[in-house]
Simulated scan of single mutants.
Amino acid sequence: MSVNNFTYSKDGLTLTEQFEGCEYTAYQDQVGVWTIGYGHTGSGVAAGLTITQDQADALLLSDVAAACAYVNQVVSIALVQEEFDALVDFVFNLGRGAFAGSTLLRELNAGNFTAAAAQFDAWDHAGGQVVAGLLRRRQAETDLFESGLTSQSNVTNG
């Protein structure tokens, strides 16, 4: 049984929507992956594909649900909502494989929250280059994650 059983908060979803933006026509991202809607990828996404806002919303909710389930499954230490939301946005953007093998997850599951928070910024590259948008996103995730550390500290020390 999982230690965590969170759902993505409205604030978390807003973060994802803001950084992803929404495109109704498929495009290739910075590394050539076909993408549509709010960062949705997969075998069905190809040149010429178009979707509606309702379809974009449905894809987003499905993709977010998968990221939530994965974070709940692989994080073996108790989280607070802000930490969970930051991790879900990270997994949504980078994928389960990247998170599964990350130092971020290893440090987190070892209970090293501060060391885990420091790992977000390591994931600001695409195609071997630092990408300003990814750096801003990683900083936003770090800020959100660390706001959870502050609330945990207040609960523990309060």
Rank of each mutant, 00 (worst) to 15 (best):
M1N: 11
S2E: 03
V3I: 14
T7V: 11
Y8C: 14
S9I: 01
K10G: 03
K10D: 05
G12P: 14
G12W: 12
L13W: 02
T14K: 05
L15H: 04
L15T: 13
L15N: 05
L15R: 04
Q18L: 13
Q18H: 12
F19G: 13
F19C: 10
F19R: 13
E20N: 12
E20L: 11
G21P: 02
C22N: 10
E23S: 05
Y24V: 00
Y24F: 02
Y24L: 00
T25R: 07
T25D: 01
A26I: 00
Y27R: 07
Y27M: 10
D29Y: 08
V31G: 09
G32Y: 13
V33A: 14
V33Q: 13
T35L: 00
T35M: 00
G37M: 03
Y38E: 09
Y38V: 15
H40W: 02
H40E: 02
T41E: 11
T41L: 12
S43M: 01
V45F: 08
A46N: 00
A47E: 13
G48F: 01
G48V: 00
T50K: 07
I51N: 00
Q53G: 03
D54I: 05
A56T: 05
A58M: 02
L60D: 01
L60V: 04
L60C: 06
L61A: 03
L61W: 04
S62H: 10
S62A: 13
S62V: 08
D63T: 13
D63S: 12
V64C: 05
V64A: 12
A65F: 00
A66F: 02
A69W: 01
A69N: 10
Y70C: 09
V71Y: 02
V71F: 01
Q73R: 14
V74D: 01
V75T: 12
S76K: 13
A78E: 13
A78M: 07
L79N: 09
L79S: 11
Q81H: 06
E82R: 14
E82T: 15
D85P: 03
A86C: 09
L87N: 06
V88R: 04
V88K: 06
F90H: 02
F92Y: 15
L94W: 03
R96M: 01
G97M: 09
A98L: 05
A98E: 06
A98P: 04
G101Q: 12
T103V: 09
L104M: 09
L105T: 08
L105Y: 07
R106T: 04
E107R: 15
L108N: 09
N112F: 06
N112H: 15
F113V: 15
T114L: 13
A116E: 14
A116D: 15
A118P: 04
D121Y: 00
A122I: 09
W123R: 11
W123Y: 15
D124H: 05
A126I: 06
A126H: 08
G128Q: 05
G128Y: 03
G128C: 08
Q129A: 14
V130Y: 02
L135V: 11
L135H: 15
R136F: 07
R136I: 06
R136H: 13
R137P: 11
R138V: 11
Q139N: 09
E141W: 04
F145P: 09
F145S: 08
E146M: 13
L149R: 12
S151K: 14
S151A: 14
S153N: 12
S153V: 09
N154G: 02
T156H: 07
G158E: 06
G158I: 05
